[in-house]
Design a binder for these strands. Structure first.
Length: 230
DNA sequence: GCGACAG
DNA sequence: ATCTTGTCGC
């Protein structure tokens, strides 16, 4: 169902594609309040080898419903602001192989809190047509105040006078995460869902599960396990 | 011009 | 992202 990922050959070309995709973004849609199926996505690397992973968790229990991994090669070097072109080709492929359709996708990185207001989560949302949110571990763009020290506390992340996300504390006294909307969800709903996904840890269970799976899949691919070890 | 810069 | 041991703490 997702549209194919277009691979640019240059940074300038990538920015042009980004600008085009941005016209299809829905930065407001309410989005799912308590999604039945939430997907986590991540990619692990080793030189030019990589492994993308998607893990779908279900309901309030956060049980694993389905998981898919896709081995591959790096096709676009990392450039701040263009992370999507490095991670998405394999991730879109993995999402296409899912037999269930997630109600929400949680990405590792930013959504509209981006230099050109179109980060990884936005790309994935527009490409799949599904609601997406970005949850990043470190600062990238924007300025903010330190949020309160209890879980649930947050402060605005602003860029050029606009609120582009929230710095959200997911655990008491623990370093907060940076939440920004990707596609078809509003910031309030995004944060509500992130809190529902962080009952015991700083990062969403979806992110933790996808991170582990991508690393395992990468190791398996490097050892030549399975059939897709090209 | 110089430094910063998701993962 | 990745390179990397032990160690402090729940």
């Amino acid at each position: 169902m997702p549209a194919a990922m277009t691979m640019p050959a240059t940074v300038h070309e990538a920015e042009a594609i980004q600008e085009d995709l941005r016209t299809r973004l829905d930065p407001t849609g309410p989005g799912p309040r308590d999604p039945a199926l939430v997907a986590g996505v991540d990619v692990a690397y080793a030189g030019d080898r990589l492994a993308a992973a998607v893990v779908v968790l279900g309901g309030p229990t956060l049980e694993v419903v389905e998981q898919v991994t896709v081995p591959g090669r790096v096709a676009f070097d990392y450039v701040p602001g263009l992370l999507a072109f490095r991670e998405l080709p394999s991730l879109v492929e993995a999402l296409e192989r899912l037999t269930v359709t997630p109600d929400l996708i949680v990405c590792d990185g930013y959504g509209v809190a981006h230099p050109r207001r179109f980060g990884l989560a936005c790309h994935l949302g527009v490409l799949t047509g599904l609601p997406t949110v970005g949850v990043a571990k470190t600062a990238f763009v924007g300025s903010h105040e330190e949020p309160g020290r209890e879980r649930g506390s947050w402060s605005e992340l602003r860029l050029d006078g606009d609120v582009v996300g929230r710095v959200l504390r997911t655990q008491d006294r623990i370093k907060p995460v940076f939440v920004s909307t990707g596609h078809a969800v509003d910031l309030e709903t995004a944060c509500h869902n992130v809190l529902a996904l962080t009952p015991h840890h700083r990062l969403p269970e979806t992110t933790r599960a996808a991170d582990r799976l991508s690393r395992d899949a990468l190791q398996a691919a490097l050892k030549g396990v399975g059939f897709n070890s090209r």
